[in-house]
Write a protein that binds this DNA or RNA. Structure first.
Lengths: 345, 345
DNA sequence: TATTGGCACTCTTATACTATAAGTGCTAAT
DNA sequence: ATTAGCACTTATAGTATAAGAGTGCCAATA
């Protein structure tokens, strides 16, 4: 005979209590505690029955016979998706966040956001640099260095400045370079770096005959300047050391591979990249990320925008056993504040 | 009756063997092993007597009664200063070092050096950025951003590019800014950033009446551009995660404070700063550094130069129990190669 | 039929005891 | 001055034991 309903209202409520309890205590939760914790007035024995069901469903799991239960990844997932009661942000924290992000000088906003994320959560904070494709060319300048070496300076709409040294095929005078800058600025300013790159390539192919030598030189240089790989994706990470305090990360092997992932950056970037597609808070719990190094970690992210376009994500990295009900709204708000800070500049 | 000579040739030789053995094995060294290890043909009992003397002198130390002996900081110090037989660098490694540093693009040399230091030693590598005071102004450019906001770009002799946004007291046209750049370049190029800062301040006080408005504007902007704190000292650290493999750093508390020191940077910078004064290899062993976080670590450094001036230091951070006889020449050579790489640019 | 008390069972954790091995310090002999 | 010998100390590993926590299941209950 099949049980009628493994997952009813009551079992969900118990799952919720169990996870909340586990998050706050860090100890496997037994039927006794749960019986006292909830106001369902159920005996431990009844609760044991329910817990057995929840275990069958793969939502919780027992480390060994005589221990209580611990949430599995699926358990956390269900909890986060449907059971969670988010706690609004402490208004004091909000004030501090707002004040710090707004008063903070210019492109430091990214660094500040990262620092705030880690300080206020006591976990690791991460913010990606704005996506290159979604950043607009504001101004370009060519400066002579030596014979055929030219320093290219690109100013974007976020008032970040990038520079790169290119080698030209022939020497240029300062005046010629000035002319070239003027031409590129008049021609391409206001478009995204990605589209400038495409436009330059297209113009080189199609409009060769219509351009004079000066324009041709300018476009050639622009092609070098905007070549792929000139700027790698990157992120700003803060408070990694906070992670060393958590017992679930006290295994040196695990910790080492986690920190290696942080310094190699690519897996973290890939993960964060996935979060740019969603337009709200996105969460990876434990193994969900697909990266072994993040087995024991959860990642809570939210995208931030410039001119209503998503240009990056920020988030918090901590142990799977984190206070989601506080972290989720916090990350959400921080993303909005960072967007605001970047837009008023 | 006083013993004639606690520290004679023989005891030094034994100390040397003991430390070498401890460095290679990581286990406390007992009298038996030492007796077999050396060709002195001494019985364990004799060696025990000598070891007791060495312990009295504070050069070695016994973790507990039934363990062998382990070098103390003073022991390591004596070893490094007078007993060490340095091993010349493997010629294959030298080739790789040389090739990688030389072919590597431009200001990446610093990053590459750091990476090489960590990869070839399997410990952490660190390289300070060239000291600002010893970096020469090559070219300055002012670009208009908005009304009173001006982007300043400074190119130095190492072809590093720094940029900063300043707020001017009144709006300037692009042409005026161009003029200002020209003036500053003609006036101050070729001098160190530090001396430019001083000169600008002095000129503002002394030569006010002799300057026209354009010059005054230019110098005013330069003053903002070169204001203190515009560029912090900094360093590039690589391979920190290598340190997580060492048993002497497996205490999470210790490890955490070490990594916190790495990200706060100031204590590391202070330490590295001290090494700039010496003009050869400099070593801090364990507590010698004066920073608790570095208790269990040694730091081997050497300064590097540009145009025969010391502008920075590089080094290796690892456990006190490291193969000094290999690390010391390696750091030395790397510093020389980095200097060479920076000078040929 | 859902809930519950009771109870045997499992597994972890802590403690104590034991034996073993490593290495010392000291003394007396060489 | 060196060494053999020996008593002594301490870490480490293994084993036994007891206590405690929590479970699963069965039979009683409402």
């Amino acid at each position: 005979m099949v049980k009628r309903q493994l997952l009813n209202e009551r079992s969900l409520q118990l799952l919720k209590s169990l996870i909340e309890r586990y998050i706050s205590d860090g100890q496997p939760v037994g039927s006794r505690v749960l019986s006292k914790d909830t106001d369902l007035n159920l005996s431990p024995a009844t609760i044991r029955n329910v817990m057995a069901d929840l275990e069958d469903l793969g939502l919780i799991h027992s480390p060994h016979t005589s221990a209580g239960r611990v949430p599995t990844v699926s358990g956390y997932r269900l909890f986060v998706d449907t059971l969670l009661t988010v706690k609004p942000l402490d208004s004091q924290e909000l004030t501090r966040l707002h004040a710090t992000l707004m008063t903070d000088g210019n492109h430091n906003a990214i660094n500040t956001a990262s620092r705030l994320l880690s300080e206020l959560t006591q976990m690791a904070g991460v913010v990606t640099l704005p996506k290159r494709e979604l950043v607009f060319l504001r101004h370009i300048e060519f400066l002579p260095l030596s014979n055929t070496r030219v320093l290219v300076i690109v100013v974007t709409n976020e008032q970040e400045v990038h520079n790169k040294i290119i080698n030209t095929s022939k020497p240029f005078s300062a005046a010629e370079l000035q002319q070239a800058s003027n031409f590129i600025n008049s021609q391409y300013a206001g478009r995204s770096l990605g589209s400038v790159r495409e436009a330059v390539l297209k113009d080189l192919q199609d409009d060769r005959e219509r351009m004079n030598q000066g324009m041709l030189d300018a476009v050639n240089m622009a092609q070098l300047a905007f070549a792929e790989n000139s700027e790698q994706d990157d992120y700003v990470l803060s408070g990694e050391t906070n992670l060393m305090g958590f017992s679930e990360l006290s295994n040196m092997e695990k910790l080492k591979s986690l920190f290696e992932a942080f310094s190699q950056k690519q897996s973290v970037l890939h993960l964060l990249d996935q979060c740019m597609k969603a337009d709200g808070v996105q969460i990876f719990i434990g193994e969900e990320s697909g990266y072994k190094a993040f087995d024991q970690c959860s990642l809570v992210t939210a995208p931030y925008t410039v001119s209503d376009e998503i240009v990056g994500v920020l988030g918090v990295i901590g142990p799977t056993r984190m206070a989601y009900e506080k972290i989720i709204p916090f990350v959400d708000v921080t993303a909005k504040l960072l967007s605001a800070a970047l837009n008023t500049k």
